[in-house]
């Protein structure tokens, strides 16, 4: 199983990188760009017995280490692999 995890800043936390890219895109003529939020993408290969177990364990990993929940939120999807 593969966990595809996205970690991004929470609403209200300053994201200077996102702001800079936002301005750069506007400058390039992409005026429809309203906001840019830059985060992290992680892929974790798992040897889990079931999807339920993977769901619980990946959530734990995110809360314990992968995201700092003071400033970041996370979401993930589990993809079956052979």
């Amino acid at each position: 199983m593969l966990a595809q995890i996205h970690v991004t800043f929470k609403e209200g936390v300053l994201d200077p990188q996102g702001k800079t890219v936002h301005h750069a895109l506007n400058d390039l003529g992409y005026e429809e760009v309203l906001d840019v939020n830059i985060g992290k993408y992680l892929e974790i290969k798992l040897d889990s017995a079931s999807e339920e177990e993977a769901e619980i364990r990946v959530r734990e990993m995110c809360e314990q280490l992968l995201a700092n929940t003071v400033i970041e939120s996370f979401r993930f999807t589990l993809v079956p692999t052979d």
């Binding site: 300053l14 200077p16 990188q17 800079t20 700092n68 003071v70 400033i71």
Partner: peptide, 17 residues
């Protein structure tokens, strides 16, 4: 200390990057 939770809050990238 912030990551440990011994102090409150967090530190992020400088505004100027």
């Amino acid at each position: 200390l912030l990551e440990c939770g011994l102090l409150p809050g967090a530190l992020i990238q400088n505004q100027s990057r």
